[in-house]
Design a protein around this nucleic acid. Structure first.
Lengths: 137, 137
DNA sequence: ATCGGTGCAAAGCCTTTGCAAAGGT
DNA sequence: ACCTTTGCAAAGGCTTTGCACCGAT
């Protein structure tokens, strides 16, 4: 889909307050975040930061392999999280709307797709109520 | 998320050429389709049909339980398919960009989420090369 | 002094909505 | 007739892009 337009993944990528602030956000929050959330959190450090800058930074960091996009089917926005986590999947809490990682793979090892299909990767999404919300009921 | 606005799921839902054409599309194509695709296919029967009409019909049919939304993480658009299929998941071919159903559930039955989490439903997406594309290589 | 980065506003893309005309029942 | 449905165009929501100024190296 993305045919790597001008993504000169080699360019220098200068160090700026904005980008530092954005990286820090992910070091503090250990869960997938929406661009808007990243922007709000980054504003605590760099008040003037704009949404466009956040989007640009997120895209670069994804290209660099520092972040990963997380698209939860039931949600409308793309989320971002650190790419330095091992293989894991996502749990979507229908109460608090948060997305949480859960380690370990829930996939069987047996035949998954019909014969003739080549499976390169997979994603699993669980929906329900997270531990916090369940405890609060 | 959708707090059921005015969805009077009880109203009469008149029979129109447009809606018939849209239903027929799903009876012919047995795979998830984008609104644009549905519109193009429906135009073969009702040339003047507009995209807005398709979107409205799709939404109603989903509310009625005739169709289901399919949101593949790697794709940007929502897809729709008949709801009368059993539990299944989706395979996304990275060559032809088509989404194909595959029966059977690839999930383990063991512990999926951390303790305390209540799992209500799940979705699995496989990515790779479909049988047709693999054969053509 | 360069040339990438930033903020703002405008543009894009898909989807939804407003409205008057058309069409079912 | 009554009231839903349609088609068109305009509006929305999120993300990207154009541009002039700012700032890191």
């Amino acid at each position: 889909m993305n045919t790597a337009k001008k993504s000169s993944v080699s360019s220098t990528l200068r160090r700026t307050r904005q980008r530092d602030a954005i990286r820090d956000v992910f070091h503090r929050e250990h869960r997938p975040l929406r661009a808007e959330e990243v922007c709000a959190l980054a504003k605590q450090v760099v008040p003037g930061i704009g949404l466009a800058t956040v989007y640009r930074a997120l895209k670069q960091l994804v290209e660099r392999g520092e972040l990963t996009e997380v698209r939860v089917p039931e949600l409308d926005n793309v989320l971002y999280e650190s790419a330095d986590k091992g293989h894991h999947h996502h749990f979507c809490c229908r109460r608090c709307e948060r997305i949480l990682d859960f380690d370990g793979c829930a996939m069987k090892t047996g035949p998954l797709a019909p014969p003739g299909f080549v499976v390169e990767s997979h994603e699993v999404y669980l929906y329900g109520v997270c531990a916090d919300c369940a405890a609060a009921l």
